[in-house]
Simulated scan of single mutants.
Amino acid sequence: MPATVETDVAIIGAGPVGLFAVFECGMLRMRCAVVDALDAIGGQCTALYPEKPIFDIPAHPQIGAAELIERLERQAAPFTPLYLLGRRAESLREEAEGFVLGTSAGDSIRCRAVVIAAGAGAFGPNRPPLARLEEFEASGAVRYLVARREDFRGKRVVIAGGGDSAVDWALSLKQIAARVTVVHRRPKFRAAPESAAQLEAAAARGELELAIPYQLHGLEGEDGRLSAVVLATLKGETRRVEADHLLAFFGLSMDLGPIARWGLALDRHHIRVDPATCETTLPGVYAIGDVAAYPGKLKLILQGFSEAAMAAHAMHARVFPGQALHFEYSTTKGVPLASAPGGQAGVAAPAGG
């Protein structure tokens, strides 16, 4: 049933940067509602690589993507955000004291500020143009992400692609799969140089196979059960690789969707912001994380965390006009749980519907 929500800040995107924005806003006693097109929080960390290790989160030499999301959710929990999942942000209308954000589920969210933390927008995998692809997708024989590494124990796995995802999962799955074959159309990989070197070393030791220069050509099997992947060179030479699973890592197709029609200044599929505040060209609307563009921008989760803090401080005057912001370190102020103006700190209260 569509909800009518009154809150301080509407956050579009429940990935790691959106979740940290809930915490930063909560520390300044701003209530949040979070909208995401996926049915679960976590963004790409949940949908694409929940078991993948991340190495550049401060104080965590290594942390799994799923664990990072669980910890961010726990960090935001004291501010009791309202999560509106499985719906897309559709419309944005300005009104006297802020905005009304509409969703694909018919929700109406009244807020004083909007934070777009939508990565690069709604995303989906780039799918290879193969006959019978849908049949094998439905059975799980063809996949575009690894949700559970254990699903591939003892299996024959073909991995297609030359980027970080393809190389990282080849190195990981070779430890448990019966056989791993990596298909790439040229010898040079786009992955991090150290990872690419590890891949080549593993192939030299016979721990996995590199099928180069080949591309995907066809799928074989019955009743959704994959038996082999057919590969081909640009010259038309073919070979057959027996397989139980095909993992295709050809990147994501990004789309800002309706957000692109909100009148914001865009730089290709990204939103231009003021690097000091992360405010877009529409006052009161901010963009953080991968979707934000400015000179010197780094697409790192930790930079998105910093942008969340900057945006929260910048929007405080809009959420609480006339109220001075006395900045304090979290070590001295702790986590504020007392009631804030307009309701309990962090609670986005439905106003009916």
Rank of each mutant, 00 (worst) to 15 (best):
A265H: 10
T238D: 07
L210T: 08
A260V: 09
K155H: 00
E279T: 13
G161M: 08
A191P: 04
E279P: 07
V180P: 00
H269G: 11
R185S: 12
G154W: 02
L171R: 03
M254R: 07
D164F: 12
L234P: 01
S172H: 05
R185V: 11
I271M: 13
E242I: 09
F152T: 13
S227R: 12
D151E: 11
S195F: 07
M254W: 12
H270Q: 14
L266T: 09
Q175L: 13
F250G: 03
H217T: 03
G257V: 14
H270R: 15
A265T: 15
A276T: 13
V180S: 01
R190A: 14
G161C: 10
E194A: 14
D274E: 14
D223F: 09
F249L: 09
A178E: 15
P213E: 04
G251W: 02
R153G: 10
E237A: 13
Q175R: 14
A166G: 11
R148S: 12
E209I: 10
A191C: 06
R148V: 05
V157Q: 07
T238N: 06
F250D: 00
R239E: 15
R149G: 01
T233C: 07
A177V: 13
E237Y: 06
R149Q: 04
L173A: 08
E237P: 07
L199R: 03
